[in-house]
């Protein structure tokens, strides 16, 4: 009885909580969705962007004098690895494609009429290698 009662109270609290949460969130959205506020955020973000850029340029300049790598250096090196990885990927695709073409070619040759009973030994060898 008590358990059911507690559950009922908790369900009611949950329902009411959801309603209040929705109301609060709608109010926040409405309050922020004002051109004046959005303009202020836009202007502030420009100021922050300018400060970050200035700071980054300073660090880049200092890195030359103090001989330390920056995040840009690390990123550039990593990009080289990614380029190499993409080239390997391309090579792997070409090898796979070549392998497939080769297998198809082999099938065509073996199944052709000119590959006659005189080549029985060769055919058996081919079948064996295929099933292995």
């Amino acid at each position: 009885m008590t358990t059911n009662h507690t559950q009922e109270i908790l369900n009611a609290v949950k329902k009411l909580g959801l309603k209040v949460e929705l109301g609060l969130n709608n109010s926040i959205h409405d309050a922020l969705n004002q051109p004046s506020i959005l303009k202020a955020v836009n202007n502030q973000s420009r100021l922050v962007a300018a400060s970050i850029s200035k700071l980054q340029q300073t660090v880049e300049t200092l890195s030359i004098a103090f001989n330390f790598p920056t995040k840009n250096d690390v990123a550039n090196t990593t990009k080289l690895f990614i380029q190499a990885e993409e080239k390997l990927d391309l090579l792997e695709e070409q090898v796979t494609q070549l392998n497939r073409s080769f297998e198809e070619f082999k099938d065509t040759i073996v199944n052709s009429p000119s590959f006659s009973s005189s080549n029985r030994w060769e055919r058996e060898k081919y079948e064996y290698s295929k099933n292995k």
């Binding site: 959005l38 303009k39 836009n42 973000s45 962007a49 970050i52 850029s53 980054q56």
Partner: peptide, 10 residues
């Protein structure tokens, strides 16, 4: 009227 490119680039 809003341009977030500078902060995103930074």
């Amino acid at each position: 009227e809003i341009n977030l490119n500078p902060i995103l680039d930074a």
